[in-house]
Amino acid sequence: MESRSPSIAAIAVIGRYNNPLHISLFPATGPNYEQERDRLEYSFMVNSCLDIFEARMPAKTVGHDFGLLHAIDERIAMYGWLTNTCIKLVIVVDMEGRPATNAEAGKTAILGLRNNDLTPAFHAVQTAYIRLLRNPFYVPDEHNPKKAQGTGSLHIASPGFTKEIERIAKIWYPGITTL
């Protein structure tokens, strides 16, 4: 069997009122196939993280990294990050998401991720969100279920943001230092 290495399966951005702002899915790739992920299934998985955020929030007053939230099975695990503005970032990692490029990378699938392997990815997603807020065409209140007046979608529609999230997911690997 070919050796596999971890990759990002999904990146989700969730707003203050637990409203989904953005969910991007990334297929598991092989030498000559791409296995799509089920949007509904991942939506439920991200939803299941929200209670863990809620439960850990009072105890965790310092730092933004919520670490491993929970693992679905041997492959899929979810990691969380909370910004000061209560934006929740969730990254779903597929431990066997892509073929290993070398023997070293193949081992991480068995050894597991280290604590701060995902920190650069979270930093990059947060930076992307900050950049989004500096876009004058993005009005945060239009994506806030308590304040939005129209009936439009509350999801982030900015193509720049989507592209940046995609870039982060594509180039991340365990042990990367900057994204």
């Binding site: 503005t85 500096r134 945060p140």
Partner: peptide, 19 residues
């Protein structure tokens, strides 16, 4: 209001969370 929202998002990133 809009400027305040953006500034906080940008500059509270490395600060402890206000509870």
């Amino acid at each position: 209001y809009r400027v305040g929202q953006g500034l906080v998002e940008r500059f509270s990133a490395n600060k402890p969370r206000a509870s």
